[in-house]
Design a protein around this nucleic acid. Structure first.
Lengths: 184, 184
DNA sequence: GAGTACATGTAAAACGTTACATGATTGC
DNA sequence: GCAATCATGTAACGTTTTACATGTACTC
């Protein structure tokens, strides 16, 4: 069983429907974006290997007047490998490298105002992220399969929960830092 | 200005006090652990380069009967570089690759029970993490500098907020998945 | 016709983990 | 004496990003 999870991310998307490499990049940004990324430098080599190993198949539909539309689709063997991986327990918690916390931890090297600025910048980005989540959840209509769990919404709710928590942390930390800033 | 943040993580720790490479590894695990990691394969080469560039200095204090104690300490040039980086705005939000969400997103390929199991496994790990945080925050005495912000506590609180949020998400997601499991 | 977005791909560099090698010291 | 831990370091491997190269199609 392959270790590199890029294979499963791509197989998983192909399990929903055929796509080109270019499509995959955008799909990943739009639907897995808040918990996964892949670059072209990964996508294309992975697609090639998937085809070599019979886990995906490539088909080019002729278009009228346009360049052929290339689409990769998952094979039965691909579905099987995806299924096996999905069943396997999760190996490790995410590495969680957080640049803000790294800077803040060493905050004693700066004055309070500069640390506060970092927190506020971060806060502003989080508010944007929250808005994006809100828009996505509004756009998402009712579940296409009402009798099945809506897994996509669940991953979105994860992002929303975490963002709300960090927003709260920013607000509390900001208030705490403000008490250390000299009033004139 | 160097891009690789390992340099700043190590410089930052050296700004608190001199340490050996081995010490650094443990310090990182213990104090930056919930938002940062470094392996020996990074620490030792970075230390070497820091010394080459005059950003850190190495000193070996002779020990009675023991092997010399090697300690790296930050230089003035090192402090300056650390300071410059600390002032710089944070470039990007963490990449956040989350294996659980990746699996869950493709949950339609599994039955509900198997997805539930993943959530429950994750939940169990989170409860452990929460306990660890609780212990750390109990062990941490009052701030050594009551007139300065306690940045260490702030990073810990970040971790606690996030863990609480994800615990809640697990509980809600679990409940939701249970409604889709056939009762016999 | 010029510029932008579409589309595919490769190469190099950077980043990061793991495994290994080596040897000293401590505790049983 | 043996095992565990301390301590340092390197090499190999795998992952990931970035930059580049190439060409097509659409839109102003």
């Amino acid at each position: 069983m392959r270790e590199n999870k890029s294979y499963y991310a791509i197989l998983g998307l192909l399990s929903i429907g055929p796509q080109s490499g270019y499509d995959l990049k955008r799909t990943i940004e739009q639907s897995l974006g808040h918990f996964w990324t892949e670059s072209f430098g990964q996508i294309y080599p992975v697609l090639k290997k998937l085809v070599d190993e019979g886990l995906a198949a490539v088909s080019s539909e002729p278009q009228t007047g346009k360049r052929d539309r290339i689409a990769y689709s998952i094979t039965e063997a691909g579905r099987e490998m995806l299924h096996d991986w999905l069943l396997k327990p999760i190996t490790k918690l995410p590495p969680e490298k957080n640049e803000l916390l790294l800077k803040l931890y060493f905050g004693h090297n700066l004055n309070v105002e500069d640390n506060l600025r970092h927190v506020e910048d971060f806060y502003a980005k989080l508010l944007q992220t929250r808005d994006i989540y809100t828009m996505i959840s509004r756009e998402a209509g009712p579940s296409p399969h009402p009798h099945r769990p809506d897994y996509e919404i669940m991953t979105l709710q994860f992002g929303q929960k975490v963002v709300e928590a960090i927003i709260e942390w920013c607000e509390e930390t900001r208030a705490e830092l403000l008490t250390y800033i000299e009033k004139d």
